[in-house]
Design a protein around this nucleic acid. Structure first.
Length: 104
DNA sequence: AGCGTGACGAACT
DNA sequence: TAGTTCGCCACGC
């Protein structure tokens, strides 16, 4: 576990149920452009159930990827279980349910 | 200590 | 509108 990852997971845990956020938003909240680094960190996903990592999606409004069991399919299932609708691999009303971190 | 990789993103063709 | 290219930076080898 690195400080960088700890920071990422901390932000992830702030995401309310039924909402989603993007890798870019996380990067922004951390004041960095390293979106790739965020993805790398989240992809490691050491504490899977602890952190709602499935609430993180690419800016495209699609699902992106998932390393957990079941892959993308599982990710979609988790989101829908929280009330997030997904059609054709895309999040419905993505911009509306998108959670934004407070920029400090 | 350098190199390649990756749960992305934005610009270009 | 879809596919490709390049940039970003943390991490493992």
């Amino acid at each position: 576990m690195t400080p960088f990852q700890a920071q990422v997971y901390e932000l992830l845990s702030e995401i309310p149920e039924g909402t989603v956020t993007t890798y870019g938003d996380i990067a922004k909240a951390m004041h960095t452009n390293a979106v790739r680094a965020i993805g790398t960190a989240v992809g490691k996903n050491p504490n899977a159930p602890e952190v709602p990592c499935h609430r993180v999606v690419p800016r495209s409004g699609k699902i992106g990827n998932y390393s957990g069991e079941g892959g993308v399919i599982r990710k979609i299932a988790l989101l829908q279980g929280e009330g997030v609708l997904v059609v054709n691999g895309k999040i419905v009303d993505f911009e509306q349910i998108r959670f934004l971190f407070k920029s400090s």
